[in-house]
Deep mutational scan, measured.
Amino acid sequence: TTQFTVHSPEQAEQWKEYAKQKGLEVHVQKKNGTWHVTIH
């Protein structure tokens, strides 16, 4: 599991796309103005 924080919805979307291409599961949670992205 990879977990990191991004600071814009655009970055979060890019990671979603990346994960989809790799066939991975991605979870994005918005918290205090940042987005926590978890890739399984």
Rank of each mutant, 00 (worst) to 15 (best):
E13N: 10
V6A: 05
H27K: 08
Q14H: 12
Q29M: 11
S8T: 13
Q29K: 10
K31F: 12
T34A: 14
A19S: 04
Q21T: 09
T5I: 14
T5P: 04
T38F: 08
H40V: 14
T34V: 15
Y18M: 04
E17M: 11
F4I: 10
N32K: 06
A12S: 03
K16I: 15
E13A: 10
G33M: 05
W35T: 01
E17A: 11
E13R: 11
W15H: 02
Q21A: 12
Y18G: 01
T38I: 12
Q29N: 08
T5L: 10
T5N: 06
V37N: 01
V37Q: 00
T1C: 15
Q11I: 12
A12E: 02
K31Y: 12
H40C: 12
E13H: 07
Q29L: 12
Q11M: 11
V6R: 01
A19D: 00
Q11R: 07
T5G: 03
H7S: 13
K31T: 10
K30D: 07
P9D: 12
Q14R: 13
V37L: 05
F4P: 02
H40Y: 15
H7C: 14
H7E: 12
Q3E: 12
K30W: 14
H7D: 14
Q29E: 14
V28W: 04
T2A: 10
E17R: 11
Q21F: 09
T2E: 07
T2Y: 15
H7F: 12
E13G: 04
Q3P: 03
P9G: 10
H7Q: 11
H36G: 03
L24H: 04
L24S: 03
K22E: 06
K22D: 03
Q11H: 08
A19Q: 01
V26Q: 01
H36E: 13
G23A: 04
Y18K: 03
G23N: 06
T1A: 10
H27I: 12
K16C: 13
P9A: 15
H36M: 13
E13F: 08
T1Y: 14
G23H: 05
K20A: 09
S8P: 01
H40Q: 10
T34Q: 12
N32H: 07
I39A: 01
G23W: 03
H7L: 10
Q14E: 09
P9M: 15
T2K: 12
W35P: 00
T38C: 10
K22Q: 11
G33H: 06
T34P: 01
A19L: 06
W15F: 05
Q29S: 11
P9I: 15
Q29H: 11
A12G: 03
K20L: 11
K30R: 10
T38S: 06
V28Q: 01
N32M: 05
W35Y: 10
S8G: 06
T34I: 14
H40S: 13
Q21M: 12
A19G: 13
T34Y: 13
F4L: 07
Q3K: 12
W35D: 00
K22V: 08
K20R: 13
V6Q: 02
V28D: 00
Q14L: 13
E10M: 07
I39Y: 02
Q29G: 05
F4D: 01
V26T: 03
Q14F: 15
E13K: 09
A12T: 03
T38A: 04
A12K: 02
H40D: 05
A19E: 01
H7M: 10
V37G: 01
W15Y: 04
Y18P: 00
H36N: 06
Q29A: 10
V26M: 06
E25S: 11
H27D: 10
K31Q: 11
V37W: 02
T38G: 01
N32L: 06
W35F: 08
S8A: 04
Q14S: 09
E13S: 06
Q14P: 03
K31H: 11
H27R: 08
E25G: 07
V28H: 01
L24N: 02
Q3G: 06
G23S: 04
Q21K: 12
K16M: 13
W35V: 02
H40T: 12
E10H: 07
T5Y: 13
K16L: 12
K31P: 01
F4Q: 02
L24A: 04
F4H: 04
I39M: 06
G23P: 03
E17P: 01
